[in-house]
Design a protein around this nucleic acid. Sequence first.
DNA 1: CTAATTATAGACATTAAGACTCTTTAATTA
DNA 2: TAATTAAAGAGTCTTAATGTCTATAATTAG
Lengths: 145, 145
Amino acid sequence: MKYAQATNYALHTMVYLASISPDSLVGVRLLAELQSVSTTYLSKILTKLAKEDLVSSSPGVNGGYRLARSADSITFLDIIEAVEGRQAILTCQLAGVEKEEACVIQQKMEVGEQQLKSYLAGITILEIVEELDESVKSFLLKHQR
Amino acid sequence: MKYAQATNYALHTMVYLASISPDSLVGVRLLAELQSVSTTYLSKILTKLAKEDLVSSSPGVNGGYRLARSADSITFLDIIEAVEGRQAILTCQLAGVEKEEACVIQQKMEVGEQQLKSYLAGITILEIVEELDESVKSFLLKHQR
DNA sequence: CTAATTATAGACATTAAGACTCTTTAATTA
DNA sequence: TAATTAAAGAGTCTTAATGTCTATAATTAG
Ligand code: SF4
Ligand code: SF4
């Protein structure tokens, strides 16, 4: 079980946005350079984040992206679901064929999935940035190749 | 985040093996028919399970598969890892480039992953079969198309 | 011993998804 | 008006998942 690379980019981008400049706009070019990924590809990921109201965008000169909400209201789960979509961890093969009453297999997996979601929903970007704060400069520099 | 279809087959197959006949051998043909999957494909999955010592196999007439260990010693995690492999949920892009000290992003994700693993390691096949026991017959019939 | 049965293995084909590029369009501002 | 930047779409490339086919090896029934 592995998240997509795009999710990785998204998480890092959000942390960058929150730590570099919580308010002012940051262009996709800088964000892409920091992660050694192409601007066009990262752009698509950011568009997904924008549609879920996690970032807001402005075109034009000096345009770019910034967090759409306060950093303490954006969680890992928000970001992951925005990129990965909201598919169940295990899809019952009988879905739709007949109501699955209370199949134990499904039940158990759903509980596990829900636990993970709850955990991820408890991690805010603010929390990440704060714990990162002392070494945020070296952190950012570290990723410049 | 979604497990492979093969994982789904594997979980169901193990439940079948444990509920139909804990001891006697069951051929792959029956197991495949129950799940409407080809015998050759399910065979590959079963080979993976065999390599992780979750099932034992016997060729020849009246051969087939059975659980390699007692049902209470086989967990969902065992089965899932046997099929999916053991890859981290999120791979740091700097892996190997330099030691990542204690990056918060990675830390948090690892904790979540570990929680899920612990949960899955707590679910035994025996537990599933027992909770399924009352309606095991209708359960099995339900999946015959 | 022989033949039927069954798992194992490998090569192969097909499909789906992920990762990424290129180009055009639209919006904004200097 | 021109430069800048995001948004959108089409298209490419790669990889992984899914599945098939065929041959081989092991086992047992007869
Ligand atoms: S056993 Fe449960 S999860 Fe599996 S096909 Fe039946 S209802 Fe669905
Ligand atoms: S921020 Fe953490 S997870 Fe991301 S690349 Fe750096 S060390 Fe790895």
